[in-house]
C-alpha cells in the first residue's frame, strides 16, 4: 500500500489483485452490469485519490476497498428508482439467472444497512469482526443488524410467495 501511493505499477497491482472481488461484490449488490462497471470506476478512482490517507488500522487493503465500494453501492441504491417486488419468488424450476434477478430485487427492497451486512457476511464470506471493520461499527451492531436483516429478507421472501 505504501508503494501504491507513489508507484504506478504498485497501484496497478493493487487494482488487478482486487478488481474481480470488488466487481463481484458490487454485481451482487446491484444485479446490474452497467452499474457495476460505473461503480468499479468510482471505487478505484476514489481509492487512487485517497490511497495517501490509507492507514493500517486493523483493516487490510481488500477490506478498505470493500468499505469504499459499500459507500458507493449504498449511494447507488438510494438514487435508483425502486423496482416492484417480484410477483412470485423463484422456485426450484426457475432458471438461475431469473432467480438471481428476483433475489436481487428482494435484497434491494431492504434498507442499505441490511443490504450491506447480508452481502458482506453471507455472500463475500467476511466474518462478523471483518464486517464490523469494513462498516466501521461495533461487532454487536453487525450481529443485531444481521438478525434483523435476515428477518426482513424472510418477510419479503414470504410476501413474494417464496415461503
Amino acid at each position: 500500500m505504501a508503494a501504491a501511493r507513489r508507484d504506478r505499477e504498485a497501484f496497478a497491482e493493487l487494482y488487478r489483485r482486487h478488481y474481480d472481488a470488488i466487481g463481484t461484490y458490487l454485481y451482487r449488490r446491484t444485479g446490474d452490469a452497467d452499474a457495476t462497471r460505473d461503480l468499479l470506476s468510482d471505487v478505484f478512482l476514489a481509492a487512487l485519490r485517497t490511497v495517501g490517507r490509507f492507514r493500517w488500522r486493523g483493516i487490510g487493503a481488500r477490506h478498505w476497498l470493500y468499505r469504499i465500494a459499500t459507500r458507493a453501492a449504498n449511494r447507488w441504491a438510494r438514487r435508483r428508482r425502486p423496482a416492484p417486488l417480484p410477483d412470485e419468488v423463484a422456485c426450484p424450476r426457475t432458471p438461475p439467472l431469473e432467480a438471481q434477478e428476483q433475489v436481487t430485487r428482494l435484497l434491494l427492497s431492504l434498507p442499505a444497512r441490511f443490504q450491506e451486512v447480508l452481502t458482506l457476511h453471507y455472500l463475500e464470506g467476511l466474518d462478523v469482526a471483518e464486517t464490523a471493520r469494513v462498516l466501521g461499527v461495533a461487532r454487536g451492531t453487525v450481529k443485531s443488524r444481521l438478525s434483523r436483516a435476515r428477518d426482513a429478507l424472510r418477510a419479503r421472501f414470504a410476501e413474494g410467495g417464496g415461503a
Binding site: V103, L106, L153
Partner: peptide, 15 residues
C-alpha cells in the same frame, strides 16, 4: 428457490 434466498446469489460472479 433454495432454503436460503441469498444462496442463489453466491453463483453470481463478475466478469
Amino acid at each position: 428457490m433454495t432454503r436460503d434466498p441469498l444462496e442463489t446469489l453466491r453463483d453470481r460472479r463478475w466478469d
